[in-house]
Design a protein around this nucleic acid. Structure first.
Lengths: 158, 158
DNA sequence: CTTACTGCAAACCATTTGCACGATC
DNA sequence: GATCGTGCAAATGGTTTGCAGTAAG
């Protein structure tokens, strides 16, 4: 082998094998496109871009592929996106814990001190009005519940 | 007056006046319901609950009311929710800045040290797999852009 | 009495599902 | 060659819009 650091494509093929997913031209194209994407694209956007390479690919394939990739944690999703809008009666500064399994959101008091600072370049270029820390994980109830479920790949953080 | 601290209902009526919104039984019911709601409900859920009091209220009214409340910052929304799903090629620990106006999401390197800690009770009850700081505000381009737009109420934070 | 709000219906958009054909392993 | 993936089409679910009737200020 002559590649000391594993390139993304290799990681992709490896992950597919680990999860019994076949390596198809469509999946490869979607993966490559997403890896070169700068800004957290929607399925729609990935579809339009991939289409320049694989002119006959369907939207459904792109969407299913992205969902599948997220399921095996090859990629991530922006928390909240793709789910029905939810309202928050509390407009004061506070944090959230979201259960990735059941979707329940629990409020957290913000840290007594040491609120995460707005980075200087961001404060200069944005009119920042809101800040929140979002934790994702599996709640007690869902841990107890045995139902088979997607994304179980990720490891606990400290 | 005999109310030293302003109660929520009063705040509601005041905010309505400030924004030329009429105080209707429907709006009042939606507001009261949301204020007593524990868990970041969807429009659908608020609708079902409000319906127990105002049996003839329509879903559309509930939904529009919630949207209107969010627009004038009487309530908040869970970031990302209600928008098309977006994918993130980067699975490593990083933060996000979201422009509330155009929706663009920009990545931020996580703080060098002092990552927001998972509160102890949460670490005990959740299998936490992911943590992110989310800033919301208006990006340069959108600040320059004059188009009239909703939510412009909130003040800059530091 | 003016202007905004509500309720109903239809439109819209993103996402999901079922199925037959085709491709990968 | 068996199984999984793809593409098409239709269904679904949440959200949005237009409009005529109704109510708040």
């Amino acid at each position: 082998m002559h590649q000391p650091c594993k390139d993304p494509l290799e990681r992709f093929v490896e992950q597919c094998r680990d999860h019994n997913l076949r390596v198809t031209p469509q999946r490869t194209a979607v993966y490559e496109e997403l890896m070169s994407a700068a800004n957290h694209p929607s399925a729609e956007l990935v579809y339009h871009r991939v289409r320049e390479k694989l002119r006959h690919i369907s939207f459904d394939t792109v969407n299913r592929t992205l969902l599948k990739f997220a399921e095996i944690s090859l990629i991530g999703t922006v928390e909240g996106s793709g789910e029905p809008r939810r309202f928050d009666p509390d407009t004061s500064r506070h944090d959230h814990v979201i259960c990735s399994r059941c979707g329940r959101i629990v409020d957290l008091a913000p840290p007594a001190a040491d609120d995460p600072p707005v980075p200087p370049e961001i404060r200069r270029r944005y009119l920042v009005t809101n800040r929140r820390v979002v934790f994702r994980g599996t709640c007690e109830a869902c841990q107890a519940d045995q139902e088979p479920q997607g994304r179980r790949t990720s490891a606990r953080i400290r």
